[in-house]
Simulated assay, not measured.
Amino acid sequence: MTEREPFRTRIKVRHYELDTLGHLNHAVYHSYGEVSRLELLEQAGALRSLEGFAAVLLESHIVFRRELRAGDEVDVTCDVKFGSGKTFSMDSNIVKVDGTLAAEITCTLGLMDLERRKLVADPRGRLEAAGADLRLMSTSEG
């Protein structure tokens, strides 16, 4: 059995995203991770099927590996890992098209009941019940 690849989104670094040193501003790396997370949730059907619920970011950590400059194209991966509690992780790698790892982002999220303003006890189960494509969301799913 071969290992599946995580979801990917391609992004081109734009000039206005650069800092005074001429490389991608540190905050934009986080934005790229958010783009990939939202694209994955949308393509998996989680955004439209979760009426009354929303994924909320609880923690984010980034490790910068290589600089990115204007015109660089990157693939931003996103892979969900569910545990047994109220939280789950959505981890991303920002990789130049030549294969160079530019950054690693690890995020902890929860699924919030927007009426109660509380995290649901079983986010994986709620996503599955809503018809989200868990296999697209996570390389560790069946």
Score class of each variant (00 low, 15 high):
47 L>K: 06
60 S>D: 06
77 T>K: 06
38 L>W: 14
8 R>G: 03
57 L>W: 00
52 G>F: 05
9 T>I: 04
75 D>A: 15
131 G>H: 10
105 I>R: 01
109 L>Y: 11
57 L>Q: 09
25 N>S: 07
69 R>L: 08
108 T>P: 01
116 R>Q: 15
68 L>C: 08
122 D>P: 00
74 V>K: 03
109 L>I: 01
90 M>S: 03
27 A>Q: 08
4 R>D: 07
125 G>C: 05
96 K>W: 01
38 L>G: 00
42 E>N: 10
33 G>W: 02
101 L>W: 05
20 T>C: 12
132 A>Q: 05
92 S>I: 01
14 R>D: 03
103 A>T: 03
9 T>R: 08
59 E>I: 05
75 D>M: 10
2 T>K: 10
95 V>D: 00
9 T>D: 06
99 G>Q: 02
52 G>W: 04
9 T>G: 02
36 S>E: 02
113 D>Q: 07
39 E>A: 14
5 E>G: 13
112 M>P: 01
132 A>K: 01
126 R>A: 11
8 R>P: 00
80 V>D: 00
134 L>G: 04
46 A>G: 04
99 G>F: 02
109 L>V: 02
87 T>D: 07
37 R>G: 04
34 E>M: 12
20 T>I: 15
102 A>K: 02
111 L>Q: 00
46 A>S: 11
14 R>L: 13
31 S>G: 14
87 T>M: 13
109 L>D: 00
10 R>W: 01
1 M>E: 15
52 G>H: 09
51 E>H: 12
115 E>A: 13
47 L>D: 00
108 T>Y: 01
109 L>S: 08
61 H>Y: 11
114 L>Y: 12
113 D>S: 09
81 K>S: 14
14 R>W: 08
142 G>Y: 09
83 G>R: 12
89 S>T: 15
95 V>R: 01
126 R>M: 15
